[in-house]
């Protein structure tokens, strides 16, 4: 890496080069300690999934039970409901939420007014930077049956107010829409970038051939960003069993647990609140392993399509 310096130093017989690298390794120590202490130690802690963890005995002394925890998990009724809810919410998110940023990006591309684009994009990205706690507070205020703006409009139109967060069907609806609301603009960035990378000559050539806007859209723009769309889609598919904690958690309430309890929130409730440590660790391990396998599968699939992989 430092050919000139290196030869000079070797020639002068000084072993400074070696010293130079020693300092570099010393610099790495805090970072390595961080990764061991806060990432690899918890991975070691995953062994708890194969133990009957007893808080008084501690991690080391608790007895090994093999796959007992996984057997108990398979026998729990809750598990199937929680996994089902996770898959359902993720799939709904995929069907409704995935196409929206693409459509938005295509629309933004048609508008050539720079000021309009700048202002609208500033507004579109804003909800992404609010935490889910803040977003959840805003959502519950806006949807409130007594004082919320949405229900005020519904009442003004002469209908009965809708209890969006308290009714099971409406809760699922609210979950999906709020996800789209928060991240649609943000997720469109990658497609806007992909579209802006398309060679303008392609459009000129299409125009010469008599293509109008619609023709260009289907014959130039969409084929050009198909790779990006596929990559994003496969990544999403790879995450079907992984669900964020905060989005479902801040919208949850006792009236809708049947449809709103998902793997992440269930692990928190049973694990931390009810102290079922081994059981929930086993559940987490299952989720992490499935997640890892899915990512590798997704990566292989993306590479097979001739796109650049993610790993």
């Amino acid at each position: 890496m430092y050919p000139r310096t290196n030869t000079r130093l070797v020639k002068s017989g000084v072993s400074l080069f070696k010293d130079k690298n020693t300092v570099l390794y010393i610099m790495l120590i805090p970072g390595i300690i961080y990764y061991i202490a806060f990432h690899y130690m918890p991975m070691y802690g995953l062994l708890m999934a194969f133990k009957d963890f007893n808080i008084f005995l501690g991690f080391g002394e608790s007895p090994w039970v093999g796959l007992e925890n996984f057997k108990i998990l398979l026998g729990m009724d809750d598990i199937y409901r929680v996994v089902y809810n996770t898959l359902k919410l993720n799939l709904l998110n995929l069907f409704c939420g995935f196409p929206m940023p693409i459509i938005l990006a295509l629309m933004i591309n048609e508008v050539k007014n720079r000021h309009f684009n700048k202002i609208s994009q500033s507004l579109l990205y804003l909800p992404h930077f609010f935490s889910w706690v803040i977003a959840g507070s805003i959502i519950s205020a806006v949807l409130s049956t007594s004082t919320g703006m949405v229900n005020n409009i519904i009442k003004f139109l002469g209908h009965e107010p809708i209890y969006f967060l308290g009714d099971e069907g409406w809760w699922v609806f609210t979950y999906v829409i709020s996800g789209i609301w928060k991240d649609m603009g943000w997720n469109s960035i990658i497609y806007v970038a992909a579209i802006s990378n398309i060679d303008p000559q392609l459009y000129d050539a299409a125009k010469v051939d008599g293509a109008n806007r619609i023709h260009s859209l289907f014959n130039v723009t969409l084929p050009s960003i198909a790779g990006t769309i596929c990559t994003m889609l496969i990544l999403q598919l790879g995450k079907l069993l992984t669900i964020g904690f905060e989005h479902p958690y801040v919208l949850q309430n006792p009236m809708v647990y049947k449809v709103s309890e998902v793997i992440s929130t269930y692990i928190y409730k049973i694990g931390i609140e009810k102290a079922q440590y081994s059981l929930t660790t086993a559940m987490g391990l299952f989720q992490s392993v499935v997640g890892l396998i899915m990512i590798f599968l997704a990566n292989a699939l993306i590479k097979k399509m001739g796109e650049e992989g993610i790993l």
């Binding site: 990432h39 708890m48 692990i267 929930t280 391990l285 890892l292």
Partner: peptide
């Protein structure tokens, strides 16, 4: 790609 998860953390 892989993490200990909530409880081990």
């Amino acid at each position: 790609l892989f993490s200990g998860g909530l409880i081990p953390n």
